[in-house]
């Protein structure tokens, strides 16, 4: 039985406010001690992707706050949003492909 991937759940960036996710994420990212090397690399990739997506959302938040506070120009805020969307889409695409590959591997007859 494939042990569940760790490193997610409580660190969902849409649920935790900035700072809260970091504290919860630090506790949750320790991998299970019995994972095999294959599961490690999948888990690692997955965690990297999740961290990337979270950082991207933070950037978008920072830009939005700066824009609302009158610190940034409209163009800067819009561009930060666009960049965040691009990075998020990329991260999601990678996640989807990783998940698809993982499922395919898990279906292999051994």
């Amino acid at each position: 039985m494939i042990s569940p991937l760790s490193g997610l759940g409580a660190t969902d960036p849409l649920i935790q406010p900035p700072g809260g996710a970091q504290a919860a994420g630090a506790a949750a990212v320790a991998p299970a001690p019995t994972q095999s090397p294959d599961q490690d690399s999948f888990a690692q990739t997955f965690k990297d992707v999740a961290a990337n997506a979270r950082d991207t959302m933070r950037q978008g938040e920072a830009a939005a706050i700066a824009g609302l506070g009158g610190e940034a120009t409209i163009q800067e805020v819009v561009e930060a949003m666009m960049g965040a969307e691009q990075q998020l889409r990329t991260a999601l695409a990678i996640r989807d492909r990783v998940v698809a590959a993982y499922q395919e591997v898990s279906r292999m007859q051994i």
Binding site: I74, Q75, V78, E79, M81, M82, E85
Partner: peptide
């Protein structure tokens, strides 16, 4: 000009 800049976010 402001509208078209903000509209960039709708082009996604």
């Amino acid at each position: 000009m402001i509208s078209s800049t903000i509209d960039l976010l709708r082009s996604g």
